[in-house]
């Protein structure tokens, strides 16, 4: 048997090798083949997940909602102390001091990361802004979001906080943060497909103990994670309910 694994495309490019090292570690732990496939586009990955291509998915919170409610996946673990937070930033010389200074017609730049974009739009609501009265340029990475902000091609950019924190000090020194979310309870999760649930306890146990030995810790470090903790079914449902309240339809 080979487990097919994929990872939400919102991690920093520096950690791509970390996920391949994790793939090798997981194979050894489970004594079975694990095939990792990475994407640089959320939509293409989502289509392949929906077609049943993957057994194990490290998903962003919005995709986790779809995986559990529509496809019957179950969350096994979440990364320790790694909530998904969103930052809205502008050029340091911009006259904008807060979100409410933005006006209809505002130019935004973002990736196609669904949770960052949703939370970002929620943080623009106090300025009476939404998708109908803003213009968003979608780019491939957070580094390109930053470039667009620095070149003043957009008034503000949406960033995953983790990705913003990993930008170079030079780039960050030329930007200022207008607002940073503090939601705390929305995070990525590792989910297993319904047909392989019998392997859930073993995978969960190995991952929870991963930070206990030096080899595991070095793999975690290469992925910029501290470790994993169990995600119960009710905790998963709670997070999905919360995300549901953030979708306006």
């Amino acid at each position: 048997m080979t487990l097919n694994l994929t990872v939400s495309p919102d991690f920093a490019p520096d950690h791509i090798s970390g996920w391949f090292i994790f793939n090798t570690w997981l194979q050894r732990q489970l004594g079975t083949g694990v095939h990792l496939e990475l994407y640089d586009c959320f939509d293409a990955q989502r289509q392949d997940i929906k077609s049943g291509k993957f057994d194990l998915v490290y998903a962003n919170p919005f995709d986790a909602s779809m995986l559990v409610r529509e496809l019957g996946f179950k969350a096994l673990v979440r990364p320790i102390s790694k909530p998904d937070e969103t930052i809205i930033a502008t050029h340091k010389d911009s006259p904008l001091q807060c979100v409410e200074d933005l006006k209809p017609g505002a130019q935004l730049v973002a990736t196609d990361d669904p949770d960052v974009n949703r939370i970002g739009m929620i943080m623009l609501e106090p300025a009476d802004l939404d998708q109908t009265n803003t213009e968003t340029t979608t780019v491939d990475s957070y580094v390109i979001v930053a470039k667009n902000v620095l070149n003043k091609n957009a008034e503000v950019g949406f960033f995953l906080k983790d990705a913003y924190d990993e930008l170079s000090d030079l780039i960050k020194s030329q930007m200022k943060i207008l607002v940073s979310s503090e939601i705390s309870v929305v995070h990525h999760t590792l989910l297993l497909c319904p047909k392989l649930q019998k392997y859930a306890p073993k995978i969960q146990q190995r991952l929870v103990k991963m930070a206990d030995d030096e080899k595991g810790r070095s793999v975690l470090e290469s992925m910029n994670l501290l470790g994993w903790e169990v995600m119960t079914e009710e905790e998963t449902e709670f997070m999905i309910d919360l995300i549901d309240t953030l979708l306006d339809e």
Binding site: E100, I122, M123, E125, P126, D128, E237, D241, L242, T245
Partner: peptide
């Protein structure tokens, strides 16, 4: 909050409104 087809409670999430 629907669990196994039954409403077991409610979740309320509040965010910042515009003036």
């Amino acid at each position: 909050n629907i669990r196994n087809g039954v409403v077991v409670g409610y979740t309320s999430v509040r965010r910042k409104p515009s003036r």
